[in-house]
């Protein structure tokens, strides 16, 4: 899964740790999502989308598309 998360995060000047704190997850989870090693669950994807005021598909895109 490709993600815009690193760009969105850096645009706001947040570290991975700060984003993790806002999402109530570990920094390891944020890092794994950003590097494409882990696809977030739907509830977490919604939390991320809500935090950045975007739709899920504006942040995440399947590799095949």
């Amino acid at each position: 899964m490709r993600t815009e998360l690193p760009r969105l995060r850096t645009e706001r000047g947040w570290s991975q740790g700060e984003l993790a704190e806002r999402l109530k997850v570990s920094r390891q989870t944020v890092n794994a999502i950003e590097t494409g090693k882990y696809d977030p669950s739907l509830p977490l994807a919604f939390r991320i989308a809500r935090l950045f005021r975007k739709r899920i598909e504006e942040i995440f895109e399947p590799d095949g598309d």
Binding site: K24, V25, S26, Q28, T29, A32, Y38, P40, S41, L44
Partner: peptide, 8 residues
């Protein structure tokens, strides 16, 4: 108490 990745 762990988050979803840590649970996995």
């Amino acid at each position: 108490r762990l988050d979803e990745l840590q649970q996995r």
